[in-house]
């Protein structure tokens, strides 16, 4: 069954690739034939945005069971649950960054072909580069902590702090009137109905295929992370002497010793 599904996915991806090369050229672009890069470019930022929001949600779950009411004092969290949500959060962020890099790469390629420059300081390009920098800092935070608990907590805190600036840069900044007027990047192509016919169907198919691939990679990453966590916690079986860990018993003080 799994093999059949994977084979179907492979066939669909092949068909989508061929289809992307056969859709009509777009006369409005400078290089009409290469406008089809859009078909592969467009799903990437969409998945990026969904993944960072899902990652932020998982980050919130890391802090669950901690009272977040003002002036709470003694937070408590279950370490195992925290580790599980952390694995899911990092899986989301890693995949999101992959899609962000693909967005930037396809965007740069499009920029070179259509406008003649690899980097044209277009507001969209610039704002998305800021987003890449913000999430590069997320990984910097995670690398800075060797303790898994601290890594989870501080990584989650940064992921949550990064949501507002990211949403602003992706959705608001490029649409500000003076910025939108300066930008060569199309805006609201879907909402204004500019994408239609074969282009629309092809981009929807590629979006679905990318989503299936993202879900598949997410599941593999999470299962791997959970397995690593279980292995680390299973040290009682790995310990050669069979002892679990140092412990002790409270007993009355014997002052004669």
């Amino acid at each position: 069954m799994k093999t059949a599904l994977k084979a179907s996915f492979g066939l669909l991806t092949g068909w989508a690739t061929i289809w992307s090369f056969t859709v009509p050229d777009v006369a409005a672009f400078q290089a009409p034939g290469f406008a089809r890069i859009f078909l592969w470019h467009f799903p990437c930022p969409m998945l990026f945005t969904l993944l960072i929001l899902f990652g932020a949600w998982n980050s919130v779950r890391i802090f669950q069971r901690i009272e977040l009411k003002p002036f709470c004092f003694m937070p408590e969290s279950d370490p195992a649950a925290k580790a599980s949500w952390d694995i899911k959060a990092i899986a989301c962020m890693e995949l999101a960054y992959l899609f962000a890099l693909l967005t930037m790469a396809t965007g740069i390629l499009f920029s070179q072909i259509q406008w003649g420059w690899w980097w044209s300081w277009d507001p969209r390009q610039t704002s998305f580069l800021m987003v890449l920098l913000i999430y590069a800092a997320y990984f910097a935070v995670r690398f800075a902590y060797s303790d898994p608990g601290k890594r989870a907590a501080f990584g989650a805190a940064y992921a949550l702090a990064a949501v507002l600036p990211t949403l602003f840069l992706v959705f608001v900044f490029p649409r500000l009137p003076p910025i939108a007027n300066m930008s060569l990047h199309p805006t609201d192509s879907i909402l204004s109905g500019k994408i239609k016919g074969e282009y629309a169907y092809c981009v929807i198919l590629i979006l679905i295929l990318f989503t299936i691939m993202a879900v598949y990679l997410y599941n593999i990453r999470v299962r791997t992370g959970l397995a690593e966590f279980e292995l680390e916690n299973n040290d009682a079986k790995l310990d050669a002497g069979g002892d679990t860990a140092p412990t002790g018993v409270v007993r009355p003080v014997s002052l004669s010793e």
Binding site: P246, G248, V250, R251, P252, V253, L255
Partner: peptide
């Protein structure tokens, strides 16, 4: 300082 206490716990780590 053991004399301060009525109970003791020896950590063996």
């Amino acid at each position: 300082e053991r004399r301060l206490a009525n109970l003791e716990l020896q950590l063996a780590g």
